[in-house]
Amino acid sequence: SIVTKIISIVQERQNMDDGAPVKTRDIADAAGLSIYQVRLYLEQLHDVGVLEKVNAGKGVPGLWRLL
């Protein structure tokens, strides 16, 4: 499923980069989806406690990390 793919992308990127959070844009590119589509999935995963959003604010790139 797309959700499983997104989780594995975040996991893979974090492992490659010493646990650093992953940008929404990088996840979207790797999943082959638009940034808006991916954001909806990321928000859902956040709501159920799978991911945390590391930063927030208007015009700030979203950074995500697995919990």
Rank of each mutant, 00 (worst) to 15 (best):
V3S: 07
L63C: 08
V10C: 05
V48E: 14
Q37I: 15
I7Q: 02
L66A: 04
L45A: 02
L51G: 01
H46P: 03
L42W: 02
L45Q: 00
M16E: 08
V3T: 09
L63F: 08
G19D: 06
A20E: 07
W64N: 00
L40R: 12
G32H: 07
I9S: 03
V3F: 15
A30G: 07
A20G: 10
P61Y: 14
I7P: 01
V38T: 14
A31N: 01
D26R: 03
R25P: 04
Q37V: 14
E43S: 06
K23D: 08
D18C: 14
Q37F: 11
S1L: 11
I7R: 03
L33D: 02
L67R: 13
A28P: 00
R25Y: 06
Y36E: 13
I9D: 00
V48R: 13
T24S: 04
D18V: 07
A30H: 06
E12Q: 10
S8E: 10
L45I: 04
V48W: 15
N55D: 12
V60K: 14
L42C: 06
S8W: 12
D47P: 01
G59Q: 06
E43W: 10
G19W: 05
Q11A: 13
G49H: 05
Y41G: 02
K53Q: 06
I27F: 02
I6F: 02
K53C: 07
V50Y: 05
G19H: 06
I6S: 00
I6H: 00
P61V: 10
L42R: 00
Y36S: 12
N55R: 08
L45C: 02
K53F: 06
I27D: 02
I7W: 05
R39D: 05
S8Y: 10
E43Y: 08
V3H: 10
L67I: 14
I7T: 03
K5F: 09
R39E: 12
T24R: 02
P21N: 03
I2Q: 04
L40T: 08
K58R: 10
A28M: 03
R65C: 07
T24Y: 01
L45D: 00
Q44C: 15
R39Y: 10
A30V: 05
V10H: 00
K53H: 07
R25N: 08
L51W: 02
L42E: 00
I27Y: 10
S8I: 08
V54P: 01
I9V: 06
G49V: 03
N15Q: 11
A31Q: 02
Q37K: 12
I7S: 01
G57V: 06
A56E: 09
Y36T: 12
G19S: 05
G59F: 06
A56S: 11
L40F: 14
V38F: 01
V38Q: 00
R65K: 09
L33V: 05
L33M: 13
V10W: 02
R39Q: 11
G19C: 09
K58L: 11
I2F: 07
L42N: 00
K5W: 10
G19M: 06
V60H: 13
V48P: 00
R13S: 04
K5G: 03
Q44S: 09
I7H: 02
P21D: 03
G57I: 06
E52K: 04
L40I: 14
N15E: 11
Q44Y: 15
I7V: 07
I35T: 06
P21R: 03
R65L: 08
L40W: 14
G62L: 15
T24P: 03
D17Y: 15
A31I: 14
G32V: 03
I27W: 02
L51V: 09
N15G: 10
I2R: 04
I9H: 03
E52H: 04
E12M: 13
H46V: 15
R65N: 04
G59S: 09
R65Y: 10
K53E: 06
D47S: 14
Q44T: 09
T4K: 14
G62A: 15
Q44E: 09
K23P: 13
V3A: 09
L63M: 13
I6M: 03
D17V: 11
A30C: 06
G19P: 04
E52I: 07
D29M: 13
G32A: 07
M16G: 08
Q11H: 10
L67E: 04
V3I: 14
A56N: 12
N15K: 12
D26I: 06
L66W: 08
R25A: 12
R13E: 04
V48A: 15
G57N: 07
D47M: 13
E52V: 09
Y41D: 00
V60N: 13
A56V: 11
L51A: 01
D29G: 07
T24F: 02
I2Y: 07
M16L: 11
N55G: 10
I6L: 09
I35Y: 09
V50W: 05
M16W: 07
S34Y: 04
K23A: 13
I9Q: 01
A30W: 05
G32F: 03
G32N: 08
R25D: 09
S8N: 11
Q44A: 14
W64Y: 02
P61Q: 14
K5N: 06
E43P: 01
L63I: 04
R13H: 07
W64H: 01
M16Y: 08
D17A: 15
T4N: 13
S34D: 09
S1W: 13
D17T: 15
G59K: 06
Y36Q: 11
Q44K: 14
L66F: 09
D29C: 09
A56R: 07
V50C: 08
D17F: 15
V10Q: 00
K53I: 05
I7A: 03
D26S: 04
P61H: 14
R25S: 12
L51S: 01
L33F: 04
V54W: 03
N15P: 02
N15W: 11
R39K: 11
W64V: 01
V54G: 01
A20H: 10
I35N: 15
K5L: 13
I27R: 01
R39T: 14
Q37C: 12
H46D: 02
L67N: 11
L67G: 09
V3P: 03
L51N: 02
P61D: 15
Y36M: 10
I7F: 05
V48Y: 11
I27K: 00
K5C: 12
G49M: 03
V22C: 05
A56G: 12
K53P: 05
A30Y: 05
V10S: 00
G19A: 05
Q37Y: 08
Y36N: 10
L40S: 07
A20K: 13
D47K: 15
A30K: 06
D26F: 08
V60M: 14
H46W: 12
S34H: 06
I6C: 03
A56D: 12
R25F: 06
N55F: 12
Q11V: 09
Q14R: 03
L42S: 00
V60G: 15
L33T: 03
K23I: 03
P21K: 04
A31S: 08
D18W: 10
M16S: 09
T4W: 14
G59A: 06
W64F: 01
E12H: 12
V48H: 11
K5M: 12
G19N: 08
Q14S: 09
A31T: 08
D18E: 10
V38K: 00
N55I: 07
Y41V: 12
G62I: 15
L67T: 13
T4C: 15
R25H: 07
